[in-house]
Write a protein that binds this DNA or RNA. Structure first.
Lengths: 335, 335
DNA sequence: CTGTTAGCGCCTTCAG
DNA sequence: CTGAAGGCGCTAACAG
C-alpha cells in the first residue's frame, strides 16, 4: 500500500551505498556531516521511516512492551494504562494490551506468546482466579517483568503495590468511629496478596476495637453476578450489618442492588465503603465512601521500573514499591 | 534470554530441511502427515514459537492493529477497547494502544509512525481539538482505517457512530416534559460531527417545543478545567437555567462543582443530564440522568469492519454503521 | 512429498 | 570516510 521507501531507495537516489545510508541515519561517527545531511534531507523529503520488523529482527529490540491485565474497562486499570502509556512514550516505546478477563489460561497463553521476542518486557496485574506462582517463577527468568497491584510475591521481580493493609485498617476504623458495630466485608481477590491484606486490615481493626470477627459477616466474591447479589441479600437479611466494606469495585453494583431490593437506605440504614477508582465518585455518589488507589501513579512507577531494567540501570535498593491510597470520607452523610 | 529455538534448530534435530519445517508448521498440504506430526511434536516439546519480526518482514503481515484514541481513562474508550480486544483475539491479532490526549500533533505523529508497517490497520476516534480532514484523506489511502464515534466524514473509510442527533433530541424532549423550560447545553466536541449532531438535536427539540434557542445558554468545552468551572458558574448565576444537558462526560465534574458552589441542589433546583458511559451511574448517581452509548458494541463493530477489510471481504453495503444510544431516565427524582 | 535458493529491510563487521 | 558482504528467522518460488 505504501510506496516502498527504504534504505535501499535512499542509497540509489543518492548514489551511495546502503551501508553508508544506514550509518548516516544512525548518526554514526564514521560518516561525514555532508553525507549525513544529504541522507537526512532526502529521508525527510521521501518521508522515510525504518521498517520496525527488519530492525527488530536484526537488533532483537522491539521498542514494545506488553501490558497484561484482567480488563481495561475498569477505573483502576484504565488509569494505570494511562500512566504506563505516558512513560512508554517518553522512552519511545509502543504498548500492547492484553486482557485476561480473570482467566488464568488466557493469561498463560498471552504471556507465553510474548516470549517469542514480540516485546522487550511485560507489565502485569495478575488474574485473581488462581495463585500459581510456579508459572511466574519461570517466566521472570525469561523476560523482564514488573508486577503492579495484583502481584506474585517471593519472586525475583519488581512489584508496585499499595498500602492495602493500612488503608483497610484505617477505613474499618473510620466506620467504627462513625458508630458502626456490625461491619461486613465483601471479600475480593482472596487468592492474592492485595485481597488478603485488605481483609487482614479489616479483621485487625475490628479486633483492636474489641468487635467480634465473625465469618458470617464475610461474603467472598463470585464470578457469577447473580450469586453475589444473592449472597449479599442473605447477608443483609440474616446478619443485619450496619456497614458494608467492599474490597473491590465489582461488588458495588450487587451491593447497591441488594440494599435497594431490601429497602435499605444507604448510608442511613447501611453505610457503604468501597475500594474504587471512580474519579467522579466524590461528586456523583454521595452515599459511597471510597478508598482510592493512586492508579495513574502505579502505572507510571511500574513502567519506570521496567524501563530501568530494560536499560540495565540500577534499581533503587527496593524491589517492592508501595504507594499510598486515599480514604475519601463523606462528612455530609455521616461517613 | 530465551535459548534460540528456531525453525533451523527444528530442522537439524529432525534431519529435514528448513523449508519443510516451515511448511509443516503452516500446515501446508504439501507435507505428509507423518512429517507434520514429527515437526509439531518437536516444536511443542522444545516450546518453539515463531519469531514475529521475521515473519512480518517476510510476509508483510504484522497480525497487529493499532487503536488511536484520546485517552483510555474514559468510560467510553475503555469499553470500546474491551470490545476491540475481544474481536482482535478471535482473529489472533495483537492490539497496540496510542493516546493522543486530544493533541492533534501527537495524533499525526502516532499515525505516521504506524505507516512503516508496524500494523496492518488502524482503529481511531479522533482528537476534538481540530478538524483537519486533509491529513486523514491522505491517510486512508495508505492504510486500512476505521473511524469510530469521533469520525471524519466524506472520506473513503468506514465509520461506526451512534445516533447522536436523535438521542440528543430525545433527551432534550425528556427534560422539557419534566417541566424544564430553560435548558442549557454544555457543548463538547464542537469540531466534530458527534458534537454538532448532539447540539443540533438539542436545538431542534427546543424549536419543536417553541422554546427559545439562546446563545447565552450554551457553554463550550474548554481545555482549561478552571475555565469550564467559571463558565458554568457564570451561566448558572446569570441565566438561571433549570437544566444542564451535557454532551460529554468531562463536563460532569465542573457542572456538579459549580452547582454545589452556588448552593443549587441537583436535580431539584437544576436537573442534570449528560452523555456518560459510567456503568454504575444508575445506582450511584441518582441525581444524574444519562445517555449511554453502546461503547462495547461500537468497539466490536469497528474491529469487525477492520478485519473484514483486512481479509478483503465485502463490507455490507454501508460504509457508515450507526448504533443506538440509550437514555436512562430517573423517575424517582423527577427526571 | 521434500529440498534448494533467494530474498524481506536493516545492521554490522571488515576491507578498502 | 565509504562500500561490499553476510545474516537476523522466516517464507515462497521453483526444482526435483
Amino acid at each position: 500500500m505504501a510506496e516502498a521507501v527504504n534504505i535501499k531507495r535512499l542509497a540509489q537516489e543518492l548514489n551511495i551505498s546502503i551501508a553508508t545510508v544506514s550509518k548516516a541515519l544512525n548518526d554514526s561517527y564514521e560518516i561525514s556531516l555532508k553525507t549525513k545531511n544529504r541522507v537526512w534531507d532526502l529521508a525527510k523529503q521521501l518521508n522515510y521511516t525504518p521498517n520496525p520488523a527488519a530492525s527488530n529482527l536484526r537488533s532483537h529490540k522491539t521498542k514494545t512492551i506488553a501490558v497484561v491485565i484482567p480488563c481495561v474497562a475498569n477505573n483502576f486499570f484504565s488509569l494505570a494504562i494511562k500512566g504506563i502509556e505516558e512513560i512508554a512514550r517518553q522512552y519511545g516505546y509502543h504498548v500492547l494490551i492484553y486482557q485476561t478477563h480473570e482467566n488464568i489460561e488466557a493469561e498463560v497463553t498471552f504471556t507465553n506468546s510474548l516470549l517469542s521476542g514480540r516485546v522487550d518486557g511485560i507489565l502485569t496485574s495478575v488474574s485473581s482466579s488462581e495463585y500459581n506462582s510456579e508459572y511466574y517463577a519461570n517466566l521472570v527468568k525469561k523476560i523482564p517483568l514488573v508486577f503492579f497491584d495484583r502481584v506474585y510475591e517471593n519472586l525475583d521481580a519488581v512489584r508496585v503495590t499499595t498500602d492495602d493493609y493500612d488503608i483497610a485498617y484505617e477505613a474499618t476504623k473510620h466506620l467504627i468511629e462513625c458508630g458502626c458495630t456490625k461491619i461486613a466485608h465483601l471479600y475480593g481477590l482472596d487468592n492474592l496478596p492485595a485481597g488478603k491484606a485488605r481483609f487482614a486490615g479489616y479483621v485487625d481493626a475490628l479486633k483492636a476495637h474489641e468487635l467480634d470477627v465473625n465469618e458470617q459477616f464475610v461474603v467472598k466474591y463470585h464470578d457469577d453476578e447473580t450469586k453475589n447479589l444473592e449472597n449479599i441479600k442473605a447477608l443483609l437479611a440474616q446478619q443485619k450489618p450496619d456497614a458494608l466494606f467492599s474490597s473491590i469495585e465489582e461488588f458495588i453494583i450487587p451491593a447497591y442492588t441488594a440494599c435497594r431490593a431490601l429497602g435499605l437506605r444507604i448510608p442511613f440504614d447501611v453505610k457503604m465503603l468501597s475500594f474504587s477508582n471512580l474519579s467522579t465518585a466524590p461528586l456523583l455518589a454521595p452515599s459511597l465512601t471510597t478508598i482510592t488507589q493512586p492508579a495513574f501513579e502505579i502505572g507510571r512507577e511500574a513502567a519506570k521500573c521496567l524501563f530501568k531494567i530494560l536499560n540495565n540501570k540500577q534499581l533503587d535498593d527496593e524491589q517492592n514499591i508501595v504507594l499510598k491510597s486515599m480514604l475519601i470520607k463523606r462528612e455530609s452523610t455521616g461517613c
